[in-house]
Design a binder for these strands. Structure first.
Lengths: 246, 246
DNA sequence: TGGCAGAGATAACATAGGTTGTGTTATTAC
DNA sequence: GTAATAACACAACCTATGTTATCTCTGCCA
């Protein structure tokens, strides 16, 4: 496939004009491979570029003084990484790869140029940023007001649903390259307790632990456990289109 | 003062051209008064407008099935409310006023028009959205990885620092119109435990409970308790200006 | 003038989740 | 093939925080 990963990402969002495609293509010099566990940047590093994920998984996090770590969000193919730092000189959070990945980088000033050249892309980027916020909000609710059982189930279902959107297919059976430690750090729990909870879900045939990663066996079941309401993942693409490209 | 509250807000961010001022002025028909506890919208309501806060305090929240509530963010004068919902048809969270307030509304489609007409304002709005995200991130860390004592202290210091920015003056002594119930809902704690924690901080002369609201007596002291790092509130206005209006 | 609602304070008791520690595998590195 | 490491499992015990239940105080408004 000749088209860049950013173009691919946005095709999914909207029909792009030739000019807009070229604009997006120009954003990336070339996709680059990175291996598992490489840390793209740390909190406090200067913020110079954004990335789009062509292949692989990543996560953003914050390290605490006492060595604890809070995972903020997990990124899957099609996501854009680093937008959070747009308004800052320094990165607000660190970023690491969960698997071997292919990413496309584009420098920060380019984004402003894109805003200047295409109102549609500008609005789409704003929409993505607002979706990122909605995901953070949901994570906040998860941390503040749910039990460990619900937290774990909710997080897993969110990942499943987000993958469905970018893969464009639904399955009730799904493998995620996550560790229990990552879950713990994302959900504000201890690994031990995540493990306890996981055993519970395992006995109920909702999940499974293959040699590596986590296997979801019954996403609808998990959804029930979590009282999962997917509306926070439903962007209003049509509305944005109507306003930006009438 | 003749100038609209949005203009006032952005003056603080950047020197605006006459055209840009007029553009912002056009965003609002007129400031409007609302009384304490009115609920501007609920989660799921159609998202039609954004607001800027001219006077008073507000907060956004999510209600849970079981009656619990998670407060997501608190807004003070100068803040813009609702940007979070830009990419959605329905509101992601509810909004209520904490005090009698004066707000300025502007309809959603107008924002896209502003993007089209001023690259600088577009970038500033993007910066605000990214700052909102940074605040959510910090709240996430707070919920996931801090003790009740740290949570309360951190939240209070954040409010103090944010007020300083919009008030343009520093004090080591500050009154906030917050209730302990609101703190509890914002921090994922029970009111009882917030109260316990509050007593502790009171004995250490860090805070005080006047007839209504909360009085901060020693912000620096609280800052130490919370290991508060204010960098997540330092937007890079200069960078944005350089990129958007060179 | 009373009484009701919201906010705060406090006590007694209950529990979800944390901590520490010890094994077991599976994977990678030499 | 063995050492080292990372992930997972599970047991025993501990504690921060939740729950329930009073009591007070203030403000409000009928």
């Amino acid at each position: 496939m000749g088209s860049s990963c950013i173009v691919k990402h946005f095709q999914h969002y909207a029909p792009l004009s030739v000019a807009e495609r070229e604009l997006l293509d120009s954003l990336e010099k070339s996709p680059k491979e990175y291996s598992k566990n490489t840390q793209l940047w740390s909190q406090g590093d200067p913020c110079e570029a954004f990335y789009s994920v062509k292949k692989g998984w990543a996560y953003s996090f914050r390290d605490m003084e006492d060595g604890a770590r809070q995972v903020l969000d997990v990124y899957v193919p099609g996501d854009i990484i680093g937008l959070r730092d747009f308004g800052f000189q320094k990165r607000v959070s660190g970023l690491r790869l969960l698997t071997n990945s292919v990413l496309c980088a584009f420098p920060k000033p380019r984004l402003t140029e894109v805003f200047a050249e295409s109102l549609l892309l500008c609005n789409i980027f704003f929409m993505i940023s607002s979706r990122d916020q909605a995901i953070l909000v949901e994570r906040l609710v998860n941390l503040g007001r749910r039990t460990a059982r619900e937290k774990v189930a909710h997080f897993l279902v969110e990942m499943a649903r987000r993958l469905e959107k970018t893969n464009n297919r639904v399955a009730n059976h799904l493998h995620l390259p996550l560790t229990q430690t990552l879950l713990a750090d994302a959900l504000g729990l201890s690994v031990v307790h995540v493990n306890r909870t996981f055993q519970e879900l395992k006995e109920e045939k909702l999940v499974e632990a293959p040699n590596s990663g986590i296997m979801l066996l019954d996403i609808e079941g998990l959804q029930k456990v979590a009282c999962f309401d997917p509306s926070y993942l439903d962007e209003d693409l049509d509305g944005v289109l109507k306003r930006a490209a009438p």
